[in-house]
Design a protein around this nucleic acid. Structure first.
Lengths: 215, 215
DNA sequence: TATTTGTTTAATAGCTCTATTAATTGTCTG
DNA sequence: CAGACAATTAATAGAGCTATTAAACAAATA
């Protein structure tokens, strides 16, 4: 039994290495530009081994990302905390959203890339996203309307507000290679930059909806 | 001579058709996912004809986009109009930027896609972008600092302000397939939506930097 | 009509990729 | 040690892609 465990451990190590390496390359280049040959080379094993463990490249990809896509998308919804103060609601949405992205910095690019280049994957993911977004919006909507009626927030649709948050939080990650190059950031410096920028995003989103006599 | 013209016209039609079709597919799927076979099929000609006119797939791509990338990027800079009012400067940057994007709605996705998946193309484009962004930022910077010192605008870096504009203007286009699906937009409806959203972007960017006692 | 020149096609070489198969190696078990 | 079973590899089929080549076609010209 102990021996069997050792065996399994060994194989699980290779299996896990394949998963790790594959995740890295998929995130870096997207599905189409990643070859099982390249994964094998980086792992240091035979290319057939990847098919031994995962049968097809497609299954390997799904094993890695199917769950991740959905949990990533719905994480935004789940994070919505009730608070007496609408400002704090907005802040908490932005911060938890930002937090989730920073844990998966290349995932937004991959999602968008797969969904636009691969029509099959589009259909699979799109429906789940639609539901998720729908429930998030209806969740915000009533509170937002109250604020608008009370004259504390300018007239804005929940969808526009939602898009503002998504845009400001996601764009820096989607354009990360470009930004890193323009600013000569190492990856660590880029991470630090996004941390600092998080407050910037809140100020912009909140300043953008808060009633302001100076405008 | 007139005859020769007829001949040329005929060939130019096919050549032009190839360019048109190729542009569509490249914009839709990116370089890697587009095959010369598919282009030929959509044009209705033999696949070898594409190589007859453009020699390689790479050259065809470059012919279409090398200039476009640069002009697209630098259009933002060129559009900066001097105005007595800083608010109007910001507005004009946002509006002309938004206008340029709406004329090339799929280009931002292609640029990001190519730059992240293709390291060769990255180097070619990245340098030009770096210069362009640099000169834009220094152009805004002095005016922005004056506004901050005068207490009309909160303390913000030119780069953060620039990113706010880019994020809010670009994200909807990058995520277009997703947004269209979530909201059940036809392409026309999507275009109409972006037109309406343009004012939204200004309100958010400006509200996000304008001094506001209510925050 | 024969020739020239530009356009288009069919055929195919050569490459890379995915996936399968059969053979090989390594390890535990009886 | 022999046999069993998992892990790993070598070899390769089969598909799709880019690019080239040679041949066919079309139209103007001499």
């Amino acid at each position: 039994m102990a021996n069997k465990k050792v065996r399994r451990e060994k194989s699980e190590n290779v299996e896990q290495m394949i998963l790790n390496v594959a995740e890295d390359i998929f995130l870096e280049k997207g599905y189409a530009m990643t070859s099982t040959t390249e994964i094998a080379k980086r792992v240091g094993c035979n290319q057939a081994l990847i098919h031994y463990y995962f049968r097809t490249k497609e299954r390997l990809f799904e094993k890695l990302f199917e769950k991740k896509f959905v949990s990533f998308i719905s994480a935004v919804v789940l994070s919505k905390e009730r608070s007496a103060n609408f400002k704090d609601v907005v802040r908490s949405i932005i911060e938890s959203h930002s937090e989730i992205i920073s844990q998966n910095p290349r995932l937004p690019f991959l999602i968008i890339n797969e969904m636009t280049t691969n029509p099959v994957r589009f259909r699979v993911i799109a429906e789940k996203i639609k539901d998720t977004v729908g429930s998030l919006l209806s969740g915000i909507d009533s509170e937002l309307k109250k604020e608008i009626e009370a004259g504390r927030v300018r007239d804005i649709s929940a969808f526009d507000l939602f898009l503002n948050i998504l845009s400001l939080n996601l764009f820096v990650y989607i354009a990360q290679p470009l930004i890193s190059h323009v600013r000569d950031y190492s990856f660590e410096e880029f991470v630090k930059f996004t941390k600092l920028r998080s407050e910037e995003v809140f100020l912009t989103v909140w300043g953008g909806i808060c009633i302001n006599e100076n405008i």
